[in-house]
Computed example of a mutant assay.
Amino acid sequence: MAAPNYGYEKRQKELAKKKKKEEKLREKANRKLSPSSDGLTPGDPETNVASLENDPPTVPTLPTKDS
């Protein structure tokens, strides 16, 4: 009976792991390039950085003796 080739099995596992990692990175890059409809879109006020830059910062008011 032939002895198991553990080196070959290990190499196959490493290749599968590398392929899976590359696929995940590719999918992540695709999500960055084309935002999905269920997430925030670039036109939303929450994601509009320009509107945040133009709005004055809100400063909490401290209670005074008059009020």
Rank of each mutant, 00 (worst) to 15 (best):
K21F: 14
S37T: 13
E14I: 09
N30Y: 07
D66L: 05
T61E: 15
T47A: 09
Y6V: 08
E27T: 14
E22Q: 11
K21I: 14
P56G: 01
L15A: 13
K13R: 06
G43C: 02
K20R: 02
P60S: 10
K19N: 11
L52M: 08
G39C: 07
P45D: 07
P45A: 03
E22A: 10
K19V: 09
P4R: 06
K65N: 13
L52F: 10
G7S: 08
P35M: 02
D44Y: 00
S37Q: 11
D55P: 01
K24N: 14
K20D: 04
P42Y: 03
K28L: 10
T61W: 09
S36Q: 07
K18E: 15
N48P: 00
K32P: 05
T58N: 07
T41N: 14
E27N: 14
P4Y: 00
A29L: 14
N30E: 15
L15Y: 08
T41C: 11
L40K: 08
R11P: 06
T47K: 02
A50K: 08
E22I: 08
E9R: 15
L25G: 08
N30F: 09
P35F: 01
L15C: 08
E23W: 10
G7F: 10
R26H: 01
S34F: 15
N54D: 13
E53V: 05
Y6S: 07
L15H: 08
R31W: 04
S34M: 14
P57A: 11
P45K: 00
E14F: 06
T41K: 07
T47R: 00
M1P: 06
A3S: 13
K19A: 14
D38K: 06
L15N: 11
S36G: 09
Y6F: 11
P45G: 01
G39S: 06
N30K: 08
R26V: 00
E23R: 12
K17M: 11
M1Y: 07
K21N: 11
D55H: 13
P42F: 06
S36N: 06
E9A: 15
K20F: 02
K17S: 13
T58A: 08
T47I: 01
A29C: 10
V49K: 10
R31D: 02
G43L: 03
A16P: 07
K18T: 13
Q12L: 04
S67I: 13
A50E: 03
K13Y: 04
N54T: 11
P63R: 00
P56M: 02
K10N: 05
V59L: 04
P57G: 09
P42K: 01
L62R: 06
P60L: 06
P63E: 00
A16N: 15
Q12K: 02
L62N: 03
Q12M: 02
L15F: 07
R31G: 02
D55L: 12
K24D: 15
S37A: 14
G43T: 01
